[in-house]
Each structure stands twice: as structure tokens, then as C-alpha cells.
Amino acid sequence: MAKVIVVTSGKGGVGKTTTAAALSTGLALRGGKTVVIDFDVGLRNLDLIMGCERRVVYDLINVINGDAKLNQALIKDKRVENLYVLPTSQTRDKDALSQDGVERVIESLKADFDYIVCDSPAGIERGAYLAMYYADEAIVVSNPEVSSVRDADRMIGLLTSKSRRAELGETMPQHLLLTRYDCERVEKGEMLKVEDVQEILAIPLIGIIPECPSVLQASNIGTPVILDEKSQAGRAYAEAVGRLVGENTPVVVPKAAKRGLFDRLLRRSA
């Protein structure tokens, strides 16, 4: 049975696309046939993060309008078996994304895929609404930062009341993914703690992605950061994927590395 997973946040710039790219790649690495769909009509970016921007021919809107077949618009990843990208259109037409069109696309993908990951745009407009409406499960991405937590809370409210599952009276599992977590700043008391965010949002935590230079590097070269297995962020995403498929590994809160005197002196002088 195919599972539709939305990656959403409300606020922009918290790491939705990075997360959608990493999680879908991780799910495919574990053998699930996975497609990741960009719902940000007009501001396509998932293709860049996945590194397939030069191979986009047709997009989600072409498929919805019947101008292209679904399998013509799906871009097969060149690195990972079982992974496909469905890019969005650059059109400025706000109504290009129709509800029944999205439903048709998702229903036909369900026949062929194990996981359908929907990369939501920021905001709570049409694109964000349609990205989450057909979801079976949601990943709510938030930074340990006030505006991001507030918007995440708003999004959780929408998922709980406006998704199809909610309308049918079914439960919609939601997971919190905390990104850009800087343990040094948390320890200095400059950043919200994991427990603070979790207490406020009150949904289960699926992972903590530390602030990590590898994320920018991965986006520079168009490779999902989860493929950088040596990086902290890559490993954290791999663990989150494990939890998403039902592994029961506890989330470990990253701690700042204890620095020796020598190291501290060097940093000071730097």
C-alpha cells in the first residue's frame, strides 16, 4: 500500500526541500520505490536540490493538463535505484494546480510507488494545501526559532482539521523534524531547546538535524545530503528515515563537542 508523506512547515527557508530530497532518497535507498513531487508552482527548486534541473522536460502541471503522460514527466534519479522526481512548473498561473488534477496524479502514482513524498511550498495557500491534503502522514519541519515554531503550530492545526484524512475522521500521524539545530548555541542558552519546541508543538519527534556545512555543500552540487554519509546532517537524516519506516531508535540530542584548552585558544585567536 502506497504511503503519501507531506513535508511541510508553514514558514519558508526552514529546510523543507532539503528534507524532502533527503527523506525520499533515504526511502529509496531502503528499497521503497519512491517519488518526490515539487508542489511549489512558479518557484521550482526541488530539481536543483536533486541535481536534475537540466533534465526537466515535462512537469506536474503538464501532466495535470493532459499535455504529458505521467511517466514522461517522472525523472529517474541517476544515483539511486527506485527514486524519481516529479518537478513542478515555472508558470505564474496560480490556478494551474487543480485539486482533482492533483488527486488524479497521486492516485495513479499510488499504483506504482511505495512512497509518494510531497514537497510543500511555504505558506498556507493553495500549493501548501494541496501538498498536504492527500497525505497519509506528515513531516513538520521547524527550526528552533520562534517564528518557525509558531508557523509549524499553525500547520499542525491545518493538518489536523483540513486534510482529507481529518475530513474522513481518520488520524493523520505527524512527526516533528527539527532542523538547523545548533547545540553550541543551545548550550549557551541562545537557542530553543529540543524539549521546548517539542513541548510547544506536542507531536512526536522524528529527528534532529544539526546545523551542518554539508547541507549547503550538498545543495551546491545538487546531491541530497543524505548521500553524504559522513556528514552529521546526512547521518541524522538516515536515522530519521529509519524511524519513518518504523524503526524504534531513540532520538539522541546532539551535544557540543568538549573542546580542549588548545582548541579553545586556537578558536579565540582565529
Partner: peptide
């Protein structure tokens, strides 16, 4: 480099792959 290639196409209006279905 990736951005240069991509944006050159998008600014030239070539990204309007809109003509491709036709």
C-alpha cells in the same frame, strides 16, 4: 556553474518548455 547554465536558459525564456507538449 549550475546556476549560470540554468538561469541562462530561464532568462532566455527557453525554460518555457511549454512548447514541448505541442
Amino acid at each position: 556553474e549550475r546556476l549560470q547554465i540554468l538561469l541562462a536558459h530561464e532568462r532566455a525564456g527557453l525554460q518555457g518548455t511549454d512548447f514541448l507538449p505541442q
